[in-house]
């Protein structure tokens, strides 16, 4: 059955602590992108408490979906499919979105599409500018993941590099916690770093010349050791120097990976893609290498449902709808291709 390229897809995202719903037409035209964040509920715990997250999702899911339809000014009859994140994420959170999406698909008699949250992040930058042709090099940096991924024109993915220990965002959070900064740590370090000297402390750049994998645990440990040894440290300088070390490693390896696959462009993805130093460094690298750079706008970097709807649109083409007996998989993996032949 030929599907129209202009399908209107409702996306739902509840994998962690944002309850989100969005309407996207044709995999790229964002008509609404509603995000109900729970960040205040979790702040006092310095991390996301799964049961608190699950409760908040249940409380907000229907109103969030209603708001997404309202803002998009589409009626239920115009929705061609419902896509929801089925993993990875917190099981009790994922199941709220999956259950809501399947119920809506049942009532509206439209396909249900289960979406991989990471593949959705890969798609986010292209929502901004779909004119960039693959192959693309995607830098996924978040609290849970650090990956260099190649994407081809049919949305097949190859894993080129990944972190061997802490994710980049995790390193930000741990350093922030050690410095007794607010949760979440990433945005706070970014803000303090603006008033600091990134060359004040030369933190290590682990494995800089060595392959495409990452290791951030050592950087975090050096920060902690430095702070212990220098109790009168300047927090702005520490934030700037730590951030510079992480960004330096990320961008150096991303450039190498982009060369390796002959990438037409570099896309940032994931919550750490909101980091201003990383955005600046990737932009600079793109200019130096004559390569286009796509930076998703801030509400598309962090968890959102527009990327889920867009990824669902591609998935509907590549593998068709999912069955209504689908569940959620907290440890769902990206179906990486061993070698895209790039």
């Amino acid at each position: 059955m030929a599907r129209p390229m202009t399908e209107t897809i409702l996306g739902i995202e509840t994998s962690c602590d944002e309850t989100a719903a969005a309407v996207v037409i044709g995999g790229r035209d964002i008509r609404s992108n509603i995000i109900a964040t729970q960040i205040d509920l979790h702040a006092e715990f310095g991390g996301v408490v799964p049961e608190i997250a699950g409760r908040a999702h249940e409380q907000h899911i229907t109103a969030t979906v209603a708001a997404a339809l309202d803002e998009a000014r589409v009626s239920a009859a115009e929705i061609d499919a419902v896509a929801a994140t089925v993993g990875p994420g917190l099981i009790g959170s994922l199941l709220v979105g999956v259950s809501a999406a399947k119920a809506l698909a049942l009532v509206w008699d439209v396909p249900f599409i289960g979406v991989n949250h990471l593949e959705a992040h890969f798609e986010a930058a292209l929502l901004e500018d779909p004119t960039l042709d693959p192959p693309l090099l995607i830098i996924l940096v978040s609290g849970g993941h650090t990956m260099l991924v190649a994407m081809d024109a049919t949305r097949r993915f190859q894993l080129l590099g990944r972190t061997l220990d802490d994710a980049a965002g995790e390193a930000f959070d741990k350093v922030a916690r050690y410095l007794e900064l607010d949760f979440p740590g990433g945005p706070v370090i970014d803000r303090l770093a603006k008033s600091g000297d990134p060359t004040a402390v030369k933190f290590p750049r682990p494995m800089l010349r060595d392959g495409l994998d990452f290791s951030f645990s050592g950087v975090k440990t050096s920060v902690i050791n430095h702070v212990r040894a220098n109790p009168d440290y300047d927090v702005n300088d520490i934030a700037a120097s730590f951030q510079a070390a992480v960004v330096d490693v990320l961008v150096t390896k991303a450039r190498r990976a982009a060369d390796q696959i002959g990438a037409n462009g570099i896309c940032l993805a994931g919550g750490v893609a909101a980091n201003s130093a990383l955005r600046a460094a990737v932009t600079e690298a793109g200019a130096a290498d004559g390569r286009r750079v796509l930076l998703p706008r801030l509400d598309l970097c962090t968890d959102n449902a527009a990327m889920v709807a867009a990824s669902g649109w591609w998935r509907l083409r590549s593998s068709g709808p999912d069955k209504l007996d689908a569940g959620a998989d907290p440890r769902l993996k990206v179906n990486f291709v061993d070698d895209l032949g790039l």
Binding site: G46, V49, E58, G143, G271
Partner: peptide
């Protein structure tokens, strides 16, 4: 929903560090 019990992290601070999950941002 009627939960009749507060979420674990609220009920017991001692277990909080084992409960919280790193946010995938």
């Amino acid at each position: 929903p009627m939960y009749l019990r507060r979420p674990d992290a609220v009920a017991n601070w001692a277990t909080v560090s084992g409960q919280v999950s790193t946010k995938h941002r």
